[in-house]
Write a protein that binds this DNA or RNA. Structure first.
Lengths: 252, 252
DNA sequence: GCAAAAGTGTTATGTATACACCCATGA
DNA sequence: TCATGGGTGTATACATAACACTTTTGC
């Protein structure tokens, strides 16, 4: 299920019709402020297809698995090639392999990723080698009808994100290096879709030991708020025994 | 990473060396009573390989993905062909795709499964089409050095099982149709590796609404214990949006 | 001063845990 | 009758939630 918009067919992709090919796609979440809205909303980048099947339809960024690269590497590479983005968090989501999900037989290893807001704009501007015309951001609650089974894949990724934010610390993957507790709370509120008590939220997150207070404050309209950074001593998310094999670090 | 012990090469498996092939394997857990041990222990069936690579080494049951079947179907099929077993619970675990995990490039979609004790013995006896000589059960804490990266895969499956038993009701997948609360508690104790308070366990599980009391009792050495059955109205595990597409039922 | 967000304190409620205790059966 | 596991009751600790309250800034 390749979605390399307009770039030439670089990677060796067996064209045979009687073989199962392996593709890698990624659902990339970030938070975007919509104008005149109180709360930022989850958004993701999609790539417009420029060939059949599903020509001209929006799809998840992705591409074929190269025979010389691991699945993780393929996810990061295809993501960069199609959108120019480098996520702060990347984790395998699920392998989709229904027979009829594509005209030819394709098994897609799908990843899901988190992006810091500053990385989101940077990626789409600075990089080259991809086609910015055919990359666009969509709010997750206002998606078009996508190619393949990508709508269902995004539904599943959203479910995983909302689940994981409850027992893990991945919300930091959506924030810049320094942030206030209100910033962090806003991330949780956007993902979970409900308001959280500022007082209780503070105690919970302070007691977890995942935050390091700085000496800096963000000044604004009201009382200055202390800036925190993430404590990298504690893992962003417990991936189990897999994490020990390929430790993943945020690029900062 | 096929492990079809001695059966002929039935499935079309592209022999080309410059192509990525897709295999499906399954980690099947069940509980087995070891003699003179107070608590049953987790065990899983392995298949002895009868060809290179890793000839004569034990490996997870599995086989090549057929081009006409879904991943789920391939997991169930290869499982039956190699071991004659039909699990009560089957869920995708992870896709393993390191470049060097096999001499040729193989991406393995790994499933994990639970088996009722009565199914465990039945499977290995009654079915045919597989080679019982090359299938054996091993305790999870006493595994040999396996083929490929299968030791790491089992570690990860164990981690997932122990995690999931905490927030899901999958323990029923390891029990017969009717069971006492002590049976169920024993399952939890075996998986988690620690004793649980019988009184608190009873209240917790009774309050969850997942059990239906029957009129029958198991009589034994002491006071008879009420038999329960699982309430199929509530899902065995919340698989998210994926469950709605392919509902999985226990064979009973 | 006033509004609004930062930050602290207090209390109610629910859940997990520990453990005392009674019940019912086989031997 | 006694040992043992089945089953009930209850006190304690801990996490969560609700909310009153003080602090600090911009306007």
């Amino acid at each position: 299920m390749p979605t390399q918009s307009s770039q030439p067919a670089t990677i060796a992709s067996p064209a045979a019709e009687d073989v199962t090919r392996v593709a890698v796609s990624t659902v990339i979440f970030t938070l975007r402020r919509t104008d005149a809205a109180d709360c930022p909303a989850l958004a993701l980048p999609l790539v417009r297809r420029t060939r059949d099947p599903y020509d001209d339809r929006w799809a998840l960024p992705g591409g074929w698995l190269d025979i010389t690269e691991s699945l993780d590497a393929a996810a990061a590479r295809t993501l960069g090639e199609t959108t120019g983005l480098a996520p702060s968090y990347l984790e395998q989501l699920y392998a989709f392999g229904a027979v009829d999900r594509s005209p030819t037989r394709v098994v897609s290893i799908v990843y899901w990723a988190l992006l810091r807001p500053d990385d989101a704009s940077a990626g789409l501007r600075d990089q080259d080698g991809y086609d910015p015309e055919n990359v666009a951001w969509f709010a997750v609650d206002d998606l078009p009808h996508l190619a393949f089974d990508h709508n269902e894949i995004i539904d599943y990724a959203l479910w995983r994100l909302r689940n994981k934010v409850g027992y893990s610390r991945i919300a930091h993957g959506l924030l810049a290096d320094e942030f206030t507790l209100a910033d962090l709370r806003e991330v949780y509120e956007s993902i979970l879709g409900r308001r959280l008590d500022p007082a209780n939220f503070r105690r919970q997150v302070e007691g977890s030991g995942t935050l390091l207070p700085t000496d800096r404050f963000r000044t604004g309209n009201h009382r200055p708020a202390r800036l925190y950074r993430y404590n990298h001593e504690v893992a962003l998310a417990d991936l189990g025994p897999l994490a020990r094999r390929s430790p993943r670090r945020s690029p900062s």
